[in-house]
Design a protein around this nucleic acid. Structure first.
Lengths: 110, 110
DNA sequence: AAGTTATATAACTCAAAAGTTATGGAGTGC
DNA sequence: GCACTCCATAACTTTTGAGTTATATAACTT
């Protein structure tokens, strides 16, 4: 999955996670998002571009402003990937348990 | 959270995700993990170091081998972060709904 | 002891990422 | 139309990351 690359990468940066946390509370413009950080506005714009590329954020046009909002659907793919990993892990643990139980049984026979 | 940086970053690479997927099926040595990839062994060792740094993988010593295994507990922090984000989002959607309902009610009055 | 296997480390290259400053363009308000 | 605000883009620097080859180390094999 190409998009998992972008999603995980987007979330790997603390500034970007903070931006998402802010957006979870509601829409915000670029300058509003930049305010809490000791970072230039272009830096925040670049972070937003990364988040948008990952589908985690969308923007609308409001005059000269570009209010951003969180797109939680992009998180689903991540959830699914992790869940799949756990599922495979569980499946194979179960098999291992069965195998061990089997060995134990045969040892009991011997 | 410092560790979220490392965790998300570790998962942002497709080779590393593939390694985890392989490890979900059971322990594997470095060379076993390297086999499916057209990539040198040192490259895989470096990926494993990243995964280990994120707590996603652990290694044990078996003679000259270093079998790796998946540490699924490291995924919990990620799940929690995403769940928190969704929770905040839901909370604020609810407030918005309440606000809209309120406005509608007042309009009905007018 | 010698050779072989499994892995790690070092030194390097190349590309990409994160930040900066400077600037441009589109909208708004007077 | 002019000044100002909001944001994006360009050009640049610096750091980091992913990959390479070459080599070292430690354990196993015979």
């Amino acid at each position: 999955m190409q998009n998992l690359d972008q999603s995980f990468n987007a979330l790997a940066d603390p500034t970007r996670r903070a931006i998402l946390a802010r957006l979870a509370r509601g829409e915000a413009t670029v300058l509003e998002l930049a305010a809490p950080f000791s970072m230039s506005q272009p830096a925040i714009s670049k972070h937003l571009k990364v988040l948008e590329g990952a589908g985690l954020v969308s923007r609308r046009v409001d005059g000269t402003r570009r209010p951003c909002r969180l797109e939680p659907a992009a998180l689903d793919a991540i959830d699914r990937w992790i869940a799949d990993l756990r599922r495979v892990l569980e499946t194979n643990y179960s098999r291992l348990d069965a195998l061990l139980a089997d060995i134990e049984m045969n040892e009991g026979e011997a």
